[in-house]
C-alpha cells in the first residue's frame, strides 16, 4: 500500500503551509520532493515522521510501519563516536565488523571511533545517512541528505543509498534535479499558490 496524505491542512500561527493538500507516495520506490525554500518540504517530512501534528486530514499507509530519517541538521550525539551513533539506532544484530565495512563503503574507514564532534560537516552527513539506511525500517525520509558533499562523493553516496534502500519506500527532499535523475526517483514538485499554500505542481 502506498503512503497517502489526504486533505492535509497545517498552519503555523497565521501562516498556512498546507490547505487541503493531497499526495500519494508509491511504496518501495524513491520519491524526491522538490520546491522552493519555505514551501513546506521539511514540514511534510515531519508530518510523515509524526513529529508535527496536522490540523486536519489523514496520513494513511504508515500504520505499524517503522519510519526513520536523515534530518536536515544531522542530529548526531556529538560526544559519541560515529560508530556508536549508528549502533544507537541499530539493533544488536548488526555487528561491528559489518558496520566497519559499511563505513569503508562511504569513505569513512578509520573514522568509526572518532567522536562526531571531530568530524567535518560532510562526514557527519554520511554518518547520519549510515544510521538511517542501516537501522531496521520500512520507510526512510531524508532531508537534503547530500548537502555539503562534493560532486564525486555525492555520486558515490547516491549509489550507496540506492543500493541499500532497494525495495524500501524512500522520500528525499532535495533542491537538485540532477540528484533526482541520479537516484532514478519519482519527482514531486511543491509550489506556492497565490494564497501561499503549498500544492503539487507536477508529479511523475
Amino acid at each position: 500500500m502506498s503512503i497517502v496524505l489526504k486533505n492535509i491542512s497545517k498552519s503555523y500561527g497565521s501562516i498556512q503551509v498546507f490547505n487541503d493538500f493531497n499526495l500519494e507516495i508509491t511504496k518501495n520506490q524513491i520519491t524526491c520532493i522538490l520546491g522552493a525554500s519555505g514551501v513546506g518540504k521539511t514540514t511534510l517530512l515531519n508530518i510523515l515522521l509524526g513529529l508535527v501534528e496536522v490540523d486536519s486530514g489523514q496520513v494513511l499507509g504508515l500504520e505499524g510501519k517503522k519510519i526513520v530519517a536523515v534530518f536536515q541538521e544531522d542530529r548526531l550525539v556529538e560526544s559519541l563516536s560515529s560508530i556508536k551513533n549508528v549502533q544507537l539506532a541499530c539493533n544488536n544484530k548488526v555487528t561491528r565488523t559489518k558496520l566497519i565495512d559499511e563505513f569503508n563503503k562511504v569513505g569513512l574507514g578509520g573514522f568509526e571511533d572518532r567522536p562526531v564532534s571531530e568530524l567535518s560537516g560532510g562526514m557527519k552527513r554520511r554518518v547520519a545517512i549510515l544510521r538511517a539506511v542501516l537501522s531496521e525500517s520500512d520507510v526512510i525520509v531524508m532531508d537534503e541528505p547530500f548537502k555539503g558533499l562534493d560532486v564525486e562523493l555525492k555520486s558515490k553516496i547516491i549509489e550507496y543509498v540506492k543500493d541499500k534502500t532497494r525495495n524500501k519506500t524512500v522520500i528525499i527532499v532535495t533542491h537538485s534535479l540532477a540528484e533526482v535523475k541520479e537516484l532514478e526517483a519519482n519527482k514531486v514538485d511543491l509550489t506556492f499558490t497565490k494564497n501561499n499554500h503549498s500544492v503539487i505542481m507536477n508529479e511523475y
Binding site: L49, L51, K66, I67, V68, A69, F71, E73, R75, V77, L88, A89, R131, S135
Partner: peptide, 12 residues
C-alpha cells in the same frame, strides 16, 4: 529536543 526527537524516531 532535536536529539530526543531523533531517539524517538529511531525507537532507541
Amino acid at each position: 529536543t532535536k536529539l530526543l526527537e531523533m531517539s524517538h524516531v529511531f525507537r532507541v
